[in-house]
């Protein structure tokens, strides 16, 4: 690795220099040290096991927008499923073999007259079981402060301009109730199968800051 790299280098050096520095190459911060120390102490005290910690890390990594996209695609092709999803997201997820966790999630449906967007003004509540860990902007002050006050302006910052005659509804999540948006099915997607439809459903459109991707 050290010998064969060809990228531009402003300095002369002889030490091994991988393209992607390993984590250990960077100094540990105070809070990283705290994290490592707390993890080790909990394992040593038998509060948690190393296997439990690894399994939980794998579970966290396994959560992605694919689960939510699968549900939205099914809702687009199966109106009865959509009704059940609007009624009870967790139960509807179970129908598809998706574990949506134990905290209630409410699905809100975009229609020609209504656009929904979700936020958590107090912290960062988010339907992570169905769409993975939140992006940083979702947890940032600008989004949390302004989405409830001037949602159209915030949406425009994502490049999403909602016509004036469409109502914008903002849903403020809590620790006990999260939301996800069922976006409108894109025009021209009539011939697509469910898997292809799921490919049009992005994380951001399930947050409500964008629309589903255009078909074709």
């Amino acid at each position: 690795m050290a010998e064969d790299h060809t990228h531009d280098h402003p300095h002369d050096h002889k030490h091994p220099h991988p393209f992607q520095p390993d984590l250990e190459d960077k100094p540990l911060t105070h809070y990283q040290a705290m994290t490592e120390a707390v993890g080790e102490l909990l394992i040593e005290k038998g509060v948690i096991t190393g296997d439990e910690l690894r399994a939980m890390l794998e579970l966290i990594d396994s959560k992605s927008p694919a689960a939510g996209a699968q549900m939205v695609a099914r809702a687009w092709v199966d109106p009865a499923f959509k009704e059940r999803m609007l009624d009870d997201v967790l139960a509807a997820a179970e129908e598809l073999g998706i574990d949506a966790g134990g905290i209630p999630i409410r699905a809100v449906e975009n229609t020609p007259g209504v656009h929904n967007v979700i936020v958590c003004t107090l912290c960062s509540c988010y339907p992570r079981q169905l769409i993975g860990l939140p992006p940083d902007w979702y947890k940032a002050r600008s989004y949390r402060s302004r989405t409830v006050r001037e949602p159209r302006k915030v949406l425009a910052e994502f490049g999403t301009v909602i016509p004036e005659d469409v109502e914008v509804r903002v849903h403020d999540s809590t620790a006990d109730l999260r939301y996800m948006v069922i976006p409108e099915r894109p025009a021209g997607s009539e011939d697509l199968d469910e898997a292809a439809l799921a490919g049009l459903v992005t994380r951001d459109c399930m947050i409500g800051v964008t629309l589903a991707k255009a078909a074709g």
Partner: peptide
């Protein structure tokens, strides 16, 4: 508890957004 307060623009494509 910052809901509704003034704040700068959301920059979903800028550094720190993701």
């Amino acid at each position: 508890d910052m809901g509704g307060l003034e704040a700068g623009p959301v920059d979903p494509f800028g550094p720190g957004a993701e």
